[in-house]
């Protein structure tokens, strides 16, 4: 009996891709310490492919584990592919999270989107998945209004 499964615990205790890049091509953050979870992600892009990614996360076990998993998942992917990554897929790859954690602690898809948005802005790139996207718009969606019972 444990709060998290072994995969989640492994990514929490030994997170992959921790830190900051020296010259990142894009930086994105999502969440805030006030909400209890905040993630920063940086990407290195070569030929439209994410060749490296690093993260820093303030948050609970699932926030850290999902950050580790998400960065592992996007390295080697094209920008277009990375933009399609959903929290659902990250959670699936982690082998599931407690229901109460799903809404508030998985920030990776937004943080990745924000990092790519930053890269697109700096390099004058246009991606269909980012059309009309505003990195600050969805903050309210990150709410804590979930039912108590699982």
């Amino acid at each position: 009996m444990a709060l998290y499964n072994d995969t989640v615990m492994e990514h929490f205790m030994n997170p992959q891709n921790v830190g900051e890049l020296e010259n990142p091509d894009g930086t994105g953050t999502y969440g805030s310490p006030v909400c209890g979870d905040m993630m920063q992600i940086q990407i290195k892009v070569e030929d439209e492919k994410i060749v490296d990614a690093k993260f820093k996360t303030f948050g609970c076990g699932s926030a850290i584990a999902s950050s580790s998993m998400a960065t592992s998942m996007i390295i080697g992917k094209t920008i277009e592919e990375a933009l399609e990554l959903t929290n659902k897929e990250i959670i699936k790859e982690l082998g599931g999270l407690p229901a109460v954690k799903v809404h508030c602690s998985v920030l990776a898809d937004k943080a990745i989107k924000n990092a790519i948005y930053d890269y697109a802005m700096k390099n004058g790139k246009v991606y269909a998945a980012l059309e009309g996207y505003d990195p600050n718009e969805d903050e309210d969606e990150h709410d804590h209004d979930v039912p108590e019972e699982e």
């Binding site: 709060l3 615990m9 929490f12 310490p33 303030f58 609970c60 076990g61």
Partner: peptide, 13 residues
């Protein structure tokens, strides 16, 4: 600058 559940989990470990 860090979060309590993470501390709790690592202490539990």
């Amino acid at each position: 600058y860090i979060e309590g559940e993470s501390i709790l989990l690592m202490l539990n470990y």
